[in-house]
Design a protein around this nucleic acid. Sequence first.
DNA 1: ATGTTAATTAACATTATTGTTAAATTAAAG
DNA 2: CTTTAATTTAACAATAATGTTAATTAACAT
Lengths: 108, 108
Amino acid sequence: MSNLSSTFAALGDATRFAIVEKLLQEGELPAGELRSVGQISAPAISRHLKVLRKAGVVEQRIDAQRRLYSVRPEAVQAIGSWSMSYREFWQKSLDRLEMALNQEMRKK
Amino acid sequence: MSNLSSTFAALGDATRFAIVEKLLQEGELPAGELRSVGQISAPAISRHLKVLRKAGVVEQRIDAQRRLYSVRPEAVQAIGSWSMSYREFWQKSLDRLEMALNQEMRKK
DNA sequence: ATGTTAATTAACATTATTGTTAAATTAAAG
DNA sequence: CTTTAATTTAACAATAATGTTAATTAACAT
């Protein structure tokens, strides 16, 4: 599986996406803090973090008995780069769509 | 599940990601043409296309007995927008990383 | 009408994913 | 050295995802 597709797979679960959003907004957090993204057990969160880590979306830092997680900037950038590599396609398409809608407006 | 998370889930399967890449590169294609992304049966492709369509990643156009698929520009843009909304985070992080690496280089 | 082409839906088996509780690990604190 | 705290791993059940072949649908061509 392509590296990017694994990244998408990791973010394609609602709980994991919420974890990543929380980490992006609040920065590095211990595993325990992440339970607040939903009513979910600690082992479940732990495994979601493992999936995210394996996909290279988050990284772990150890501080005593806590495991601090943070988002790997490369992962978020890679997603942006992929989308941007097709920018010409979607920009043109959306521009055309907007023009067509404006035409409709003027008719009424 | 957030709309974006469903998009990621749709792209998180290697076959579906390959389908989307092919459609992005070659433009609108009939379902049959997409079998070439791997050795896979027609029904399997058909169901992957259904998942992609439900997630809003592709759209279908009917031409006689063929079903022509194409990527919805909004979907690719939405992914880019998400990444870009965190650009300050990853740009800064990566700049810091690069500087640290340059420092290391000079030491040697 | 009959056959051909393109694609989808149905039915089923297999494998993966997700969640839970209980047990184990790791490090700090008393 | 025993207890507490934070997290992970193990074991298991339930559900979802994926692929296959067979059957069905839809449109065209003869």
